[in-house]
Design a protein around this nucleic acid. Sequence first.
DNA 1: TAGATTGTTAATCGATTAACAATC
DNA 2: TAGATTGTTAATCGATTAACAATC
Lengths: 215, 215
Amino acid sequence: MAKRENISSSVVRRLPRYYRFLRELEKQGISHVSSSQLAKRMSSTASQVRQDFNCFGEFGQQGIGYSVAHLRDEIESILGVKCRYPAVLVGAGNIGTAIANQVSLEDRCFELVGIFDKDRAKIGGVIQGITIMDTDDLESFCDSHLVTTAIICVPKRAVEEISERLYACGIRSFWNFSHFDISMKYSDVIVENVHLGDSMMQLCFRINQEQNTKK
Amino acid sequence: MAKRENISSSVVRRLPRYYRFLRELEKQGISHVSSSQLAKRMSSTASQVRQDFNCFGEFGQQGIGYSVAHLRDEIESILGVKCRYPAVLVGAGNIGTAIANQVSLEDRCFELVGIFDKDRAKIGGVIQGITIMDTDDLESFCDSHLVTTAIICVPKRAVEEISERLYACGIRSFWNFSHFDISMKYSDVIVENVHLGDSMMQLCFRINQEQNTKK
DNA sequence: TAGATTGTTAATCGATTAACAATC
DNA sequence: TAGATTGTTAATCGATTAACAATC
């Protein structure tokens, strides 16, 4: 394994995009890519790209570029795309169902082992081959299946109780789609928040800004 | 209106979170908040908070703090939460349906005026009071309804064609949930991408990192 | 008045860009 | 060899943190 020194958070934020692009190149049968080609695709600079890769190894070839397969492999291993941590999803509404499908895609870091909902009408339904279970059975299931991660797709009002119960089961990492800040309550958890409303406001801001500069 | 000078992108990224928190405080009937209280909630510093607000006005009071209502109002106006740009959503699958509900929430910047899908089984269905239409009618609808923004929830393979058609209708802002980079193709569009897979990999990386430091 | 907290300037830190020798 | 492109150092830029006078 290469050097793997202090990968900064801004580099980490870019890694999934590099990974996606390298996968594409691989599918197209392209074996080598230069920093300037990658930069163009990433809306970045060749300098940035080389600097990014510099912190986790040297596998470029002067005059030729980077091996797509090698680079993809390295990023894959840094991100842990092959990990398959056992995860449960709580809340089988529209967003929950969409995420359940997402997690079952080709490039996944998690293995979805259980889906829970408290709605009687949903319990017993099947998503991606997994039967939706009653939220009442959450604790016993998590204990017996060594679940490490929870995907939270329940409404805001339900998150506090659900996250408490999951924390009590020993779950310390959360992919949170709800507007409740789990990390505020526990100091030893990893929380990745997806706040779609924030993204929407961001877009709105940029549209406004554009219109103001036009005037 | 206050000064409104060069709001940096890192500040903009934080504004929706400030906004959400201020809404909460308002609901709780709290009239004033200090930079250190906000910082605690934002996992930031009091200095950062004051610096953030500094670029768009002065409405704190020494010894007292910031007026929650005033600050919320200012951020609301900067982000354009009250804008209601007419938007169409294309792709009424799980993610599309979830987003349609999201956009129809209280704090919205867009007015969802049409939902489209090419699946005969879905056309005619109703989401949030809006009847799902045939994608074939996209052009005529966008023209007659002065649509400015499109929400893209179709599979990757369909994005290129759909975005071309929308661009031809004059639509220049996109909220994109698909793994296809619309901004690569057009230079004069505003694209806000939501890449759930990237967020998942980010979480996975942080779990791995945690485990490596433990060892 | 004394305590709290802002607005703002200066200092520090980190991230991006530029430059260029090394080398395929 | 000549052209292309890396790895790395130095320079620049921007964002965060610290400090403190002003003032409610």
